[in-house]
Amino acid sequence: MVSNTIKLFRMNKKLNRSFTVTFLMFVFLALFGAFMALPLVYAVNNAFKPLDELFIFPPRFFVRNPTLDNFFDLVSLMGNSWVPLSRYITNTLFITIAGTVGHILLASAAAYPLAKYRFFGSKAIFSIVVLSLMFSPHVTAIPNYMVMSWLGWINTQASIIVPSLAFPLGLFLMKQFMEQLPNALLEAAKVDGASEYRIFWSIVMPNVKPAWLTLMILQFPMLWGTDGGNFIYSENLKTLHYALGQIIQGGIARAGVGAAVALFIMIVPITLFIISQSSVMQTMANSGIKD
């Protein structure tokens, strides 16, 4: 235990750290790590608990007799309902994929000129984007509804997808990352006679793949977790997260099914993050706001 603790930390040669401090830091991290992880571990365990274990007193953290019943119940419950579960999953997948891919494309296209060139309006545009990082979308919720109804987009999936394409955080991070691209690369292409669009598509885009994944990891969970908000009211356009809410409303009898859906909802973004983590960290190294 003790020797493991030491090995976990890279020892810094210049400043000697006392063993006690290192150990205390380890305990501190483990303690808060548990606070962060336990609810999620609990969610995983719940999904595999048979109904009698879900309501045992005193409540038990880990599952004793794991079962897949909850998942079967989920499938049969949703198969019988008016709108099949597959419909909610398809809706959520469509919104999430269209919103994420579109966001990466649009934000990259806008970030490239801002990162690499100075032209009339470029500074002002970037300042407005940074300013818009400073308030949450709640501020614009009401006029957004009016803009949507003016466009006739109420109760369409466009009402969720289109605004998400222009979230400012993605443009900001992409621009910061693109600034690191060597100018020589772009100039060489220009000398070869490539148009700006070609440079963007075949030189800039392939070189910012880590930033694509970062934009994905920020955009995906947001859309994946959307319940359609105020914009969608047709049952056949509703999302998986909305369906989850409905199942939980079902009360005690649905607790197992709810746990199964919750596991499904949370596992997808977490898996994506595991896959893309190293690229994300590479992008985030350039995330700073410079004076």
Binding site: A109, P113, P168
Partner: peptide
């Protein structure tokens, strides 16, 4: 610089429509 404006246009139109204009409308209303 027209190419740069063209590249930025799709993003900026959506950004204007759903972020900048709503803030202004909200202030006015």
């Amino acid at each position: 610089n027209i190419h740069y404006y063209v590249l930025m246009a799709p993003y900026l139109i959506i950004f204007l429509l759903f972020t900048v204009i709503p803030v202004v409308i909200s202030f006015g209303l």
